[in-house]
């Protein structure tokens, strides 16, 4: 059975005070606007908006702690990786100004590992953190704030055809369902003495030993999909235009939110076209490390 995210109606929640369509449109505008910039000065307002939405969402810390820590960990890991290797940033800056160089005291087959800390790498990591954190915060709130009963009509309301709107609805609910099935399979195999953390051998051998988890999860997902298709077919899904039982009505504040989102996107595109918002490091810092 498809399970839903842990949504519940929250009093005084800013995000929940809007029509879900208005929120989805605003989210899309926010996402594309954020992706327009690498300049940390332009990204900070987006980070502030995201933080405001998070703090006024009414979502309790214990509800999102696990997901939040996972995503923060993920963001930090990649920011640090980029900082250490310098990869990724080279697409947005051409030259680097060295702050300090750390050279390893050992060599591997004649190659000595070197860590170069440069102004550009440091600022790129900060920009990346601000950019991804803003998007992650806004994204993580969606499952906790959007009523699952309204997924379908929301996607229909933003212009998707019936079949796609319902497919999006099912997809949104498939993710937590997959999580539940994964946990059930893990439990069933652990009860047979299987210990994931004790898997040994080479890469291919390790992948093979993951079979007891991935085969049942995959097969179960396929069987469940077939069941869903049968259940839909048996109740005439897709035979023609469908009526959506729930009705959504825009209020004034929803139009304001959409207008604000579209405004942000338009300004961001304009600013980008005008050549602003690209990767930036303060001149003063560059002069310190010529």
């Amino acid at each position: 059975m498809l399970v839903a995210w842990r949504y519940r109606k929250r009093e005084n929640s800013f995000i929940q005070s809007f029509d879900p369509r208005a929120w989805v449109i605003f989210y899309a505008c926010f996402l594309f606007s954020t992706l327009t910039f690498w300049d940390v000065r332009f990204l900070i307002p987006f980070f502030i908006i995201a933080t405001y939405v998070l703090l006024t969402s009414g979502v309790k810390w214990h509800e999102i702690r696990r997901a939040f820590l996972f995503i923060v960990g993920f963001v930090f890991f990649f920011a640090i990786l980029t900082f250490l290797t310098g990869r990724g940033g080279t697409e947005v800056y051409k030259e680097e100004h060295l702050i300090r160089e750390f050279r390893a005291s050992f060599s591997i087959l004649g190659w000595t590992p070197v860590l170069k800390v440069t102004v550009e790498r440091a600022f790129f990591a900060v920009s990346q953190l601000a950019r991804i954190s803003s998007i992650a915060i806004m994204t993580i709130l969606i499952p906790y704030s959007l009523n699952p009963a309204l997924y379908g009509i929301t996607f229909k309301g933003v212009g998707l055809p019936d079949k796609f709107a319902y497919a999006m609805d099912l997809t949104m609910r498939f993710i937590p369902t997959f999580g539940r099935d994964f946990q059930l399979t893990m439990d069933a195999q652990r009860a047979r003495g299987y210990e994931l953390d004790k898997i040994s051998g080479g890469i291919i051998e390790q992948v093979r030993k993951l079979g007891p988890i991935f085969v049942p999860v995959t097969i179960h997902a396929i069987i469940s999909s077939e069941d869903i298709i049968d259940a839909m077919d048996l109740r005439a899904f897709g035979v023609g235009p469908r009526t959506w039982l729930d009705v959504l009505t825009y209020q004034f504040r929803d139009r304001v939110l959409i207008g604000f989102g579209v405004f942000i996107l338009a300004v961001s595109i304009f600013v980008g076209v005008m050549g602003y918002g690209a990767f930036w490091v303060p001149d003063a810092l560059i002069q310190l490390f010529p």
Binding site: L2, A149, M232, R235, V239, P241, R242, T243, L245
Partner: peptide
Amino acid sequence: PERQILGTKVVNEVAFGLENLGMPR
């Protein structure tokens, strides 16, 4: 029944087939 239920709320679940037939609300 777990394999058959698609709606998140009871009212949506019971209405699913009728919605698909495009009946008036």
